[in-house]
């Protein structure tokens, strides 16, 4: 599934953010990101932590190209390309995946149909043949086995009537099937009980690959007991104010954001 662009071997730079500024609704008074720097390499898991309102979800949304945010300065390079120049769907097709904090429901469309449409959009982009429903079912079954889940989600409408935990699991299922180069998990732990948290974390771990990278956005250390990060960053006031190894997360848990 290699796109052949950029450095994909372990250690190669997947994402490079320099001096990123972003506002809500193109309103200069509403600047949320104020000069953010971050480098993510292949094979790494990064955790972005920070108090409410620090800009964590904004960062996730800006990377995915959400139209509610405007980038007012800085650069974002993804696999050597200017990510900010790409339309949201193009970013997705190039391997950027956002697991939403609040996934939306689509009535009347089954998960398996939705997933197949998504996979085929990516395949078409890469010049690969689209999968018919039978071929796709095989791909799905392989993936479900890999993350150890059953197929009860597949014939339900996308997130329609799903519990909070089910929605989060569904995001991870989509991630599993789409095999993104860069996965961004936005508060995937919020609203999950401890068992669901473990299930989701195990799936994320099972999907780790040396040529892919994961950015986990969270404000609790809890998730990081299960998805162990290589780097932890503290985001405050729209900037990364501190970075460190996984022990930084524990320190945060102990002293709080103010203490660090």
């Amino acid at each position: 599934m290699s796109t052949g662009s950029g450095k994909r071997e372990a250690g190669g730079v997947i994402l490079d953010i320099r001096g990123l500024h972003a506002t809500v609704a193109n309103d200069a008074k509403n600047e949320i990101l104020k000069g953010l720097d971050l480098t993510v390499r292949a094979g790494e898991v990064h955790a972005i932590m920070g108090p409410n309102g620090s800009g964590k979800s904004t960062l996730a949304a800006v990377l995915a190209g959400h139209p509610a945010y405007t980038v007012t300065g800085g650069t974002v390079t993804y696999l050597g390309k200017d990510l900010l120049e790409m339309a949201p769907e193009e970013r997705a097709r190039e391997g950027v995946f956002l697991a939403f904090q609040y996934p939306v429901a689509i009535r009347g469309i089954t998960n398996s149909y939705f997933l197949r449409s998504a996979v085929n959009a990516v395949r078409k982009h890469k010049g690969q043949e689209e999968l018919d429903p039978l071929d796709f079912l095989q791909v799905l079954e392989t993936k479900l086995k890999q993350i150890g889940w059953d197929d009860s989600f597949l014939n339900r409408a996308v997130n329609d009537g799903f519990s909070g935990g089910e929605k989060k699991r569904n995001e991870i299922l989509q991630m599993a099937v789409l095999e993104p180069t860069l996965a961004i998990l936005d508060e995937t732990d919020s609203g999950l009980d401890i068992d669901a948290l473990k299930t989701v974390a195990e799936a994320v771990n099972a999907l780790r690959r040396p040529d892919h990278a994961t950015v986990v956005v969270t404000h609790y250390q809890r998730l990081l007991n299960y998805i162990v990060p290589d780097r932890v960053h503290v985001l405050a006031g729209g900037r990364i104010v501190k970075s460190g190894g996984k022990e930084l997360a524990l320190e945060l848990e102990e002293k709080g954001y103010v203490g660090v």
């Binding site: 339309a87 949201p88 769907e89 997705a92 996934p103």
Partner: peptide
């Protein structure tokens, strides 16, 4: 946006 983020 959700659909676009999945490549549609």
């Amino acid at each position: 946006f959700y659909c676009k983020q999945r490549g549609l």
